[in-house]
Nucleic acid binder design. Sequence first.
RNA 1: GGAAGGGUGGCAGAGUGGCCGAAUGCACCGGUCUUGAAAACCGGCGAAGGUAAUACUUCCGUGGGUUCAAAUCCCACCCCUUCCGCCA
Length: 423
Amino acid sequence: MIDRKSFRRDFAVMGAALARRSPSLLHEGSSWQQARIFDERQRALKAELEVLQAKRNRVSKDIGAAKSRGEDASDAIGRMAEVAGRVKALDAETKEAEDAFSRMLLEIPNPPHATTPDGVDESDNIERHRWGTPRNDAVPPHWEIGESLGILDFEAGVRLAGSRFSVLRGAGARLERALMQFMLDLHADQHGYEEVWVPAIVNSKALTGTGQLPKFADDLYRLEGEDAFLIPTGEVPITNLYQGQILDADILPIRHCGYTPCFRREAGSAGRDTRGMIRQHQFDKVELVWLLPPDGAAHALMQLLSHAEAVLQALALPYRAMDLCAGDIGFSAEKTIDLEVWLPSQQCYREISSCSSFGQFQGRRAGIRYRDAAGKPQPVATLNGSGLAIGRTLVALLENGWQADGRVCLPIALQPYMGREYL
RNA sequence: GGAAGGGUGGCAGAGUGGCCGAAUGCACCGGUCUUGAAAACCGGCGAAGGUAAUACUUCCGUGGGUUCAAAUCCCACCCCUUCCGCCA
């Protein structure tokens, strides 16, 4: 959520930043425009209401005092009955305007950070750096490799749940498990994250806290008849661990890693990546989450990124890092750096990790605060990134480790977890 | 799912219509004392809006109602604890 005070004070500046995402965000009738209208209305009503409330409180106190002296107060009580009625009506009106204002604010995305480059879509993203040497020989797509090894079964996935679900068998299932364990061990032991294990079902409040709701309900699986959703990413439960809390500054930064399954309806991505396990309704991910004072966020994002990169490097997977442009970053993010792994069958880089800084946007929405040097509660800054998406890592390992003899060579780091060198 | 009890500030816990944004204790912050620390003593100490600063307003699980006035009374809902049922 954007800051209300800045919204009022720096309306033009903030609007200009938002326009970098898309000029349509500022159009007539947009949440941005409506928010301003409701805010003005809400403030005017509140001013009027508070004067009345003050009067009511004052006179009520006098009535109480008079009664305790044994005096008759029926005259004042009669006059206050009318005030009470007006307070009630005005209060309802004020609440309505306030709620409308809040609803609009929740629909406004985070203004991009100054260091987020201009651009409208992914073609405007800017490469920061590359690592590793991509192979250029002909490699079959991962689904062919997996099926011929008997470790990937897409038909079974369809039978059980429909398209975009898959089944792993034998060494494939073990590889999925090995990757989770390897990644968690790396982050917990080498990078100093505290590992957490969290629910894969959360309520709407948690999803509002991190920004998935109210705007993106269509992307989520909702449990029927309950205020409960399958998580689209571990970011939601892990960040919301601290929802509504005021944290002591000396425990910051808080840094968590955690494995969760992720569930996405993929509404609107029909036809994209329909084959294979690049885009599934259910996938596994190891997530990295930071909570910290805002001034450390930029530096922390670079550290977080390096932790995600460490996984790719340990697995000897070539990748590149991309600065996402203002038109391509997610709703809650102010800055995002994607890691894209080389997929030889497609001869291109594909997203495998997304590392974002949210500024105080999520801290404000989720009510996660810390005490600054003056002891004042302030929203924390949050950061998160995939470290990494497991399914896509498995895909990358199959293709990058594939040999002409049909076998797949496993990276050394994974061999202890797999108990073998080849698939 | 059934029954009973309960949700108050960082924590514990008092408060059953006005003098309550809320006793008290702990924790925390500042000070006195001390070589230093502890103890003791003195003072401070919830959040949000609002203001130049005050004032003022709101918040006692959530939402509604009664009343001049609600933490306190009424209704609905949510959550927690314990017991029973079920269960990995």
